[in-house]
Write a protein that binds this DNA or RNA. Sequence first.
DNA 1: TATAATAATAACAACGTTGTTATTAACAAG
DNA 2: CTTGTTAATAACAACGTTGTTATTATTATA
Lengths: 325, 325
Amino acid sequence: MGVTIKDVAKAAGVSYSTVSKALRDSPLVKQPTKERILAIAHQLGYQPNAAARSLVSKRSYTIGVVWPTIERAAHSAMITSLNKQLEKLSYTTLISINEMEFAINIFNRYQVDAILAFDDGHDQNTVQSSVPVVTYGLANGAITTPTVDANRRQAIKSAVEYLASIGHQKICYIGDLTQKDRLQEEKVAGFKQAIEELGLENIPMQVIEVSDLEQYDGFEAAKKLLAQETRPTAIISGTHDLTRGIIRSIHEAGLSVPDDFSVISYDNIPQSENFEVALTTVGVPLEKITEKLSEILMDVIDEKEVEHAIFLEPELRISESSRPL
Amino acid sequence: MGVTIKDVAKAAGVSYSTVSKALRDSPLVKQPTKERILAIAHQLGYQPNAAARSLVSKRSYTIGVVWPTIERAAHSAMITSLNKQLEKLSYTTLISINEMEFAINIFNRYQVDAILAFDDGHDQNTVQSSVPVVTYGLANGAITTPTVDANRRQAIKSAVEYLASIGHQKICYIGDLTQKDRLQEEKVAGFKQAIEELGLENIPMQVIEVSDLEQYDGFEAAKKLLAQETRPTAIISGTHDLTRGIIRSIHEAGLSVPDDFSVISYDNIPQSENFEVALTTVGVPLEKITEKLSEILMDVIDEKEVEHAIFLEPELRISESSRPL
DNA sequence: TATAATAATAACAACGTTGTTATTAACAAG
DNA sequence: CTTGTTAATAACAACGTTGTTATTATTATA
């Protein structure tokens, strides 16, 4: 069915090994011959057979991304960015939305050069893989693969510290507190730790739980908060979507950000311009994460020694949604 | 690096061809031998090499999905459903988020058995592919591959017809009207056609344009609409997200769905329960689409003759958000 | 017990590439 | 011109698997 190197060879009247060399631009083939072969290959619509190529060369120049939670759009911007980064390194990205173990098996069969697994904070059974695996998620004790992790705990801590430094004493956190998602847990832990370390005032509803991480949940949570007698002067929000809901809720109550409340959002997506208030955010910028990830992926492919727990330091980007009390 | 069939053969003390047969459960191998080999293979962590396998057997049991617009979450539920369907047929799904032409080339190299391309309503350059391609998107005149298409025009038409049949005369449509997205265009066309055919009243702001398809855009559009003097009695919305914004806007204005407005949403996602009002929707149910898609994919793989333009008929699911005037 | 029939396993070619080695062509130097 | 050297191309093995064909072991039949 497909056009092979041999078809091209026949059409060009040369041996198929010459065609192979010509296509890979080897200096062992004379320039005019090379050009002739290239032209014929193109004209015939030749596409190299990846199966054959990777079978013999042991390299597929492909990264497999395991992304079982496609429905939660959280990672899509990240995958787009990663895809771009890897493209620069002439690597191709292939995605599987299957459950971790199954997906890793598929990618092993396909002989991708490395696998990137998104740990969504749920149980990560250690899967046997002869292809190196890099994880993005929570770098905890029992990790067996290099894991890149945003230091979420530190992120929220520095948000609190910053707010305290500009005079805020009553600070509240809105986010997911359930034990289910270890990524979210970390943020809460950072918040509580900072409050304690700084000796900040304990206020009622200091930590508000949302059932999901959508805009609507932030809206509802903030509504509850505003109904309280003792209100905080600053709010830290666990995700971008929550923040949007929170701000909407505040505006709807006829109040203002940052006049009545300073708001800081955990976020790694670059600030979208068409948002009502330019947000002060804390988190690791997307590009930093994907840069690090591709770097590590290249390292494991080259069998370099790689640290197992790689923490990325968050950045505080101060903007309009926060200000001194 | 990886464990091959030959390693297993050596460990089991049989020839590698016997191992191959044992693994594929061929009747040519004695049962006890088979079991012994399987056990050893498992113990050694053997994973078949897809490159070698598909090189010789010309079948990879893999479908490549081209999904260039990952950021617009619209298709994620569909891909999840499709993945499940194909798994039942023991096919594996691999996704590329690269630009159409590039992605199709990758999948050609990887020798997937068929490619599913999501036509996002933008220009679809005809790409050369020796692997059969099925498109989900707009089945227009110049198609070169089998295309599965929800009959969006008919969907919106039947929404209008239904509303008219229960007494509504002033009906308005909120959606994307730009020429950019042909999928959205179709819906508007269906609306206008129905209004004309039924001879319904022309009201001001009968068609409201949104700049994007997010919840926020629906919210803003409805706000404008409610500010009008002559209000419609029914609203049809182009997407689920818009609808959520619209309903929120109505509630915020102290009005009710369906008491003050009947609302019908174009949608193929199954109704989410935790929504304020159970929505009346029109569209092709997700499962119907993915069933059809896998069917067609299997057909093109088996080189059966397949119709080029396959239209799926929408269904009207009446619920709480609409009622007779 | 010899032989035919069959069951079980082994050997081998092929898939489309790449990298190495062998062959031929072209050219320079004596 | 012959020979040595290098440039260009051709031939070939290998990658890990499958399907076909060849060989050996086992059983049934006379």
